[in-house]
Simulated assay, not measured.
Amino acid sequence: MDTIRISYQSMCKAMPGGWPVMAAALGMSKDALENRVYERKGQSVSVHEALQMQAFSGTTLFAEAVAAEACGVFIPLPDVAAVDDEEIQRVYMELVDEVGRLAREWREATRDGEVDKRERQRLEAIRDAICTKVTQMNHLTFQVFCRS
């Protein structure tokens, strides 16, 4: 749950004007917001408030934290206002690059028979990038090539 609390804190910091402006946008005092974020006096941030905080801060931090708590990864879908085959090809080539990077990093990380913390973080970051690119590529493909 620390991940989710950190997302609340980060969204408040990302909000132009910080905590006071976030509290005002939510219709509460800064103290009331802090009580919810830090779960003082039996209070907590509701899912609705967290989603509002995310929208106000212009981030996806709450969604990312929930996904991480569920041992998953949040993948934002691209805006598909004006997409064509060329854009899909660009995303596909980025995916191919990421898979190549994974192969190189995996070989290096496992060369000594042990994956340390830093190597694991790099491999996980590449995994997340690959998942994101596959999802984005499919989303764009479906928008362009599937009938409504």
Rank of each mutant, 00 (worst) to 15 (best):
E87F: 12
D84W: 10
I6F: 12
D112L: 08
M53W: 06
K41D: 14
T60D: 04
E108I: 13
H139S: 11
E114Y: 14
V66R: 02
A55D: 06
A81I: 07
I130L: 05
A63E: 01
E114G: 10
R5W: 00
G113P: 08
V47C: 10
Y8F: 06
A25F: 05
P78A: 13
I126Y: 00
A23V: 13
S57W: 04
T110S: 08
A109Q: 07
A129H: 00
H48L: 09
E124F: 09
D128K: 06
R90F: 06
G17L: 13
L123R: 03
E69S: 12
S29E: 10
D112G: 07
G72K: 15
I6N: 09
L123P: 00
V134C: 12
G100E: 02
M11F: 07
M22G: 00
P16L: 12
K133S: 08
A103W: 07
L102G: 03
E39T: 03
P78E: 15
T3Y: 11
F74Y: 08
R122T: 02
L33H: 02
A103R: 11
D79L: 11
V134W: 13
R101D: 02
E119P: 03
E86R: 12
E39H: 04
D2R: 08
I6G: 08
M93N: 11
R90Y: 06
C131W: 07
Q89F: 13
A81W: 05
A67Q: 03
E86C: 14
A103D: 07
S10R: 14
M15F: 05
V21R: 06
E87K: 10
F74H: 06
D84G: 13
S57C: 07
R127Y: 09
E108F: 13
M1C: 09
L123Y: 01
P20S: 14
V144A: 12
Q121Y: 04
S44I: 04
M1A: 12
A65R: 01
I75F: 04
K13I: 10
G72W: 14
E108V: 14
V83N: 01
P78H: 14
S29C: 08
Q54I: 04
I130S: 01
V66S: 05
D79M: 13
E49F: 09
K133F: 06
A23W: 05
R111A: 14
R40K: 08
V115T: 06
V144P: 09
A125M: 02
A25H: 05
G113T: 15
E98T: 05
I126V: 04
A109P: 09
R36W: 01
D31E: 14
